[in-house]
Design a protein around this nucleic acid. Structure first.
Lengths: 238, 238
DNA sequence: TCAAAAGTGTTGCAGCTACACCCATGT
DNA sequence: ACATGGGTGTAGCTGCAACACTTTTGA
């Protein structure tokens, strides 16, 4: 008899940084991944959509299961945390004393469309940069790491850029996204040529103004061609 | 309150065919994936090892989680099946009436080392070729398909050849394995050159005799170099 | 006017594709 | 002897890596 929970790693891209949407717990002052429990007559995917919607206000997001976490020790510290957190609310303690299996999902969202919303146990809901060094609940840091590894492996199979970037974006922005996910630098010129060769981008006439220096062109994904290209996987290794 | 089950897709390679180890149910005459339930104080990975050991006799196999299946409709037909199957054995029927979440694992085993062992509900435990058209329980056919898709995507990240082939194997055997997983033919000469360039194979002096025609050399994996190469992923797309 | 970022072009090399030829073995 | 499969070699092309130069912009 086990309880199934979900943890969602919600990725957004802003200010040339990859960020994760986290809840800040009132009691323990730690950050935690948005999560929840699987309801009856709900698939894991539906539960993940529900959870992400509650935190972001967005429906129908791009979501992917990446791993089930089942170490019996994972949930042992749960009880203590919830004991304190829910003091006075008379929770069902037998529930939290039990064991949890958690299925990890990652979500890719358009940063600008999200309205971060805290839940009952948290005082804030923040975008936290991956480079930020914050304290996190349990093994949530590892879960985020696993999510990024998965992202990296699936970069050529999933519409990662399409889902993370706004409709219009510049080539340097796209490159930074790829560099962040891959964890290494790419040659600006080779990157541009390679990605353009896939024929999945439309170059717009418009340029991005306001920044210092030469203004870059905007691009947007040609969704049809992108989806088609992904079916075979974008060849080559970055 | 959910029950967690596991389904294991156990792959073996024999007679130049990729095969899956399946149980043949006494009652329904259908094939089913070896599976079981998660016990307390057991990780999913440990449970999978236990289940695979019961069917194959082998310990410590290469096992990988690939997806959790959670459609509420999946398990509805379970009750009927087990009602009939366990008639007279007084099982806990409330148990089987409940909902199941199943975590899919795939295992890669050396065909020749396996002793297929049926369980209580089955009269046989057979290696079934992927090309064979057999009737399978519930969505088990799709689960196998998902396992193969995963295999294909991970061909360059996981030691798939190493785990599926016997210690000594020939180049044509290795090629057939790759072709089966990828679902398409590869050029014999280019395949050989490419795989040899990875420097992960040791060519043995010995040749395979007994077949008609020219006898091919045996090769074996250089485990050390293979593991090392996989850390970065074998570059290139097949 | 200058520094920094962005657009564009070129060259060489590596690796893949698509082939052909020879060799060995059981029938 | 011969059909079939396995070992080895090569030519051409593609595409990537590693580069430099010019253009645009705000400060």
């Amino acid at each position: 008899m086990n309880h199934i929970s979900l943890d969602c790693v919600i990725f957004g891209f802003n200010n040339n940084e990859l960020k994760v949407l986290l809840l800040h717990l009132k009691y323990s002052k730690e950050y935690t991944l948005p999560g929840g429990f699987l309801k009856h007559d709900e698939t894991l995917e539906q539960a993940a959509q529900r959870i992400v919607k509650e935190r972001t206000g967005l429906n129908n997001l791009f979501l992917k299961q990446f791993k089930a976490f089942s170490d019996p020790d994972r949930s042992k510290s749960n009880k203590a945390i919830f004991d304190a957190d829910m003091a006075g609310t008379k929770p069902d303690m037998t529930f939290f004393g039990k064991r949890f299996i958690s299925v990890g999902f990652y979500a890719l969202v358009d940063f600008r469309k999200v309205k971060p919303t805290p839940d009952l146990f948290s005082d804030r809901c923040d975008w936290v940069s991956l480079t930020a060094d914050v304290t996190m609940l349990l093994d949530h840091k590892q879960i985020i790491q696993e999510a990024i590894s998965t992202l990296r492996l699936q970069l050529n199979q999933q519409p990662i850029g399409l889902k993370l970037l706004p409709h219009k974006f510049t080539m340097p922005e796209l490159q930074t996204l790829y560099e962040t996910i891959l964890g290494r630098d790419l040659d600006r010129r080779n990157f541009q040529r390679k990605i353009l060769n896939y024929n999945i981008l439309d170059k717009l006439r418009e340029r991005k103004t306001g920044g210092a220096h030469k203004s870059p062109y905007f691009y947007s994904f040609n969704v049809e061609r992108y989806k088609k290209a992904l079916e075979e996987g974008l060849s080559g290794i970055w």
